[in-house]
Design a protein around this nucleic acid. Sequence first.
DNA 1: CAGACATATATCGCGTGGCTATATATAGAC
DNA 2: GTCTATATATAGCCACGCGATATATGTCTG
Lengths: 118, 118
Amino acid sequence: MTKFNPELMRGSLDLMVLSVLAGGRKYGYLLQQELRDASRGLVDVQAGTLYPLLHRLESDKLIRCKWDDSTGRRRKWYELTEPGRKRLSAQAREWHEYAECLRTMLAPILGPAPRPAT
Amino acid sequence: MTKFNPELMRGSLDLMVLSVLAGGRKYGYLLQQELRDASRGLVDVQAGTLYPLLHRLESDKLIRCKWDDSTGRRRKWYELTEPGRKRLSAQAREWHEYAECLRTMLAPILGPAPRPAT
DNA sequence: CAGACATATATCGCGTGGCTATATATAGAC
DNA sequence: GTCTATATATAGCCACGCGATATATGTCTG
C-alpha cells in the first residue's frame, strides 16, 4: 500500500474492490493491477491484504468465485452477487456522505472549497 | 460512533480531532461535543475512543495539555503544538487527495459528479 | 536445459486503533 | 439523598492492513 496511510483505507478498501468488480469478473491478481491503474498508482494493495479480503467478501456472500484451470494458469474468478451490488451502492453512498462531512469540517484548513464556478 | 461504520473513521478520526483543536484549546469532553456539533451529529466519538486518542496525540507531541482544577471541575485542556499544526495540514492534504482518488473511482456508482456547472 | 522472473494464490503473526464496559469523582437539580 | 450531567481513565475484544513466507507454473534468456 503505497502513498496513503494504510489506516486511511480501512473501511474503504473493500468498497474499492467491489467497485472494480462492478466492471466485470476478475481474478485477484488482475484486480490488484486494475486497482492500481484505476487509482493512478496511488493504491497498490498487497497480496497479503487482497486475498484475505476477497475471502471475507466471499464468506459474506458479496462476491462468488469459480476456479478456471483450463488455461494452465490457475485462476480464481470473482464476480459480484446481487447482495454485493447492493452493498456496493450503499457503501458508496455512506462513504460519500462521510467524505462530504469531513470536507466541510476541514474546509478552514484545506482552504475554501473549490466547488462552485466562482 | 453513530451513523458511520467505525472502520471508515480509522485514520481520519485523529485528523478530525486535530482540526477541532485548530479552533482553540479544548478539554476532552468539550471536544467530544464540538466534534458532534461540527459533524451535525454524524460523528459521535465515544469517551473510550477519545481519551486514548488524545493520549496518543500527546505522546506523539502533536498536542500538549495542562490540568486546570481551579474551577472545581477537573479539566485537562489540550492545545495544538507546532508539529501538531504541521501534521494537521499534511494529513488534511493527504485525506483530500485520497478522497478525490476514491471519488473518481466511485464516479460510475455515485453517478456523474455534481461538480461542474454542467 | 537452467535459471530468473512474472504470474497467481494462500496463510501466519504483528501492530494499530475503535469499541464496549467499567471505574472514579464532582457539580447541580429535585 | 438520589439522580443526572460532567469529566477523565483503563482493560480487553476484535477487525483488518501489513510484511514475510510458501508454493506452483508460464515465459523468457542465455
